[in-house]
Design a protein around this nucleic acid. Structure first.
Lengths: 188, 188
DNA sequence: CCTACCGATCGGTAGG
DNA sequence: CCTACCGATCGGTAGG
C-alpha cells in the first residue's frame, strides 16, 4: 500500500465508528487501521470531531438524496412508500458503515453540526408522514395516525442496520420485499 | 442527600450510559452525577466494567422474565404475541435506562459476560420465532418466514427506546395497542 | 467518602 | 508520514 488519501481516512473512520462507536475509537486505533501513527492522521484532518461530522454528513446525504427523489415523484402514495422502503434498504445494505454511524453516533456530533442532522432527520420522517397522510386521504391506506404509522415503518427500516449481514441468508432484495409487504399490511 | 447506596450508583450509571454511552461516560462524570468524586465510587464497585455488567444484566433479566412468563403460558399464539408485545413495551417505557443500556451498550461488555447476554437475546428471539411458527401451524398466522417475521416485530419493539419520551403525546398503552395492531396485520 | 496520587492513554502540535 | 512531544483526562489505588 502506498500513501493514503483523505478519502481512505474518512472511510476507515466510518468503519471503526460503526464497529466500536465514536468514543470507543481513538485516533491511534484509526491510525493502526490504516497502517500509520495516530499523529499522522492530522495531515489529513483537523480533528477527530471533523471525521465524525464528515462520516455522519455522508450518511445523511444518502437518505437526503432518497427523500428528494421520492418527494419529486408523481407516483401514488403506495408506490412512493414502496420506493422509499426499497431505497432505504439499499442505502443501509450498501453503505453499512455510514448508515450505522449516522444512526448511532450522530448524538456525539458537536452541537453546531448536530442541529443540521436533526433537521434533516425530521425532514425525512416528515416526508414519510406526509406520503402516508396522502394515502389516507386517497383511501389507499386505512391507518388513522400518520405520525405513528411512519414511526413504525421507519422502526423496521432503521433496525436493519442492527441485524443485516451480507453473509446472512437473506439478500437485500428479499429483505426489501418482506418489508414492503409488512408495511403495506400495516397501512392498507 | 445523605450517603449513597450501591443501588444509587448502579442506577446513576444506567442513566449516564443510556444518555452518553458507556465510553462517553467517565467515572468522574458518574461521581459528579451523584455529588461525589470519581474515586469515591470504588468503595461501591470494583470497576467501571462491573457497572456495565450490572446495568446490562438488570436489563437482560427484565426481558428474560417476560419471555419465561409467556413461554409457560397455554394461551393461543396470537394471544401470546400480543402479551409479548405489551410486556416489551412496558419494560422499555418503565425501565428506559436499563433498556437503552441493554440494547445499545451490551457490545462493550467484557467478552466473558458478553456471551451470556448474546445467548439470552438469542433465546428471547427464538421464543418469539417459535410462537410465530406455532401460529403458522395452527393457521392463526399466514406469514411464511417465522425468522423474518420475528425480526420485523422485534424491530418495531426495540426501536421504541429510540423515540419514546414520557412527555410525548402517546402513552405506553396507546403505543402497545398500535404495535399489537401493526404486528397482527403483518402476521395474520 | 476524601486526599493525594499512579501509570496509561487521550486528542493534538511542532518540526522535519 | 514520522519523531518527539504536550497538557488533559482516563480508570484505578493507598491510606485515612
Amino acid at each position: 500500500m502506498t500513501t493514503r488519501s483523505r478519502e481512505d481516512v474518512v472511510q476507515a473512520a466510518g468503519r471503526l465508528f460503526a464497529a466500536r462507536g465514536f468514543h470507543g475509537t481513538s485516533m491511534r486505533d484509526l491510525g493502526e487501521e490504516l497502517g500509520l501513527l495516530g499523529s499522522s492522521l492530522y495531515s489529513h484532518v483537523d480533528s477527530k470531531d471533523q471525521l465524525l461530522v464528515e462520516v455522519v454528513g455522508n450518511g445523511a446525504e444518502l437518505f437526503q438524496g432518497l427523500v428528494d427523489r421520492i418527494a419529486a415523484s408523481a407516483a401514488p402514495p403506495d408506490v412512493k412508500v414502496a420506493e422509499l422502503i426499497r431505497g432505504h434498504v439499499a442505502i443501509i445494505t450498501e453503505h453499512q458503515d455510514q448508515s450505522a454511524t449516522f444512526l448511532n453516533e450522530a448524538r456525539f456530533l458537536p452541537i453546531d453540526n448536530r442541529s443540521a442532522v436533526v433537521a434533516m432527520r425530521d425532514r425525512y420522517e416528515a416526508t414519510f408522514r406526509e406520503i402516508i397522510a396522502e394515502g389516507i386521504r386517497t383511501r389507499a391506506f386505512r391507518a388513522q395516525n400518520p405520525a405513528l404509522a411512519s414511526i413504525l415503518v421507519l422502526s423496521v427500516l432503521n433496525a436493519l442496520i442492527r441485524w443485516y449481514r451480507p453473509s446472512g441468508s437473506l439478500d437485500p432484495r428479499e429483505i426489501a420485499d418482506a418489508m414492503v409487504a409488512f408495511a403495506m399490511d400495516g397501512l392498507r
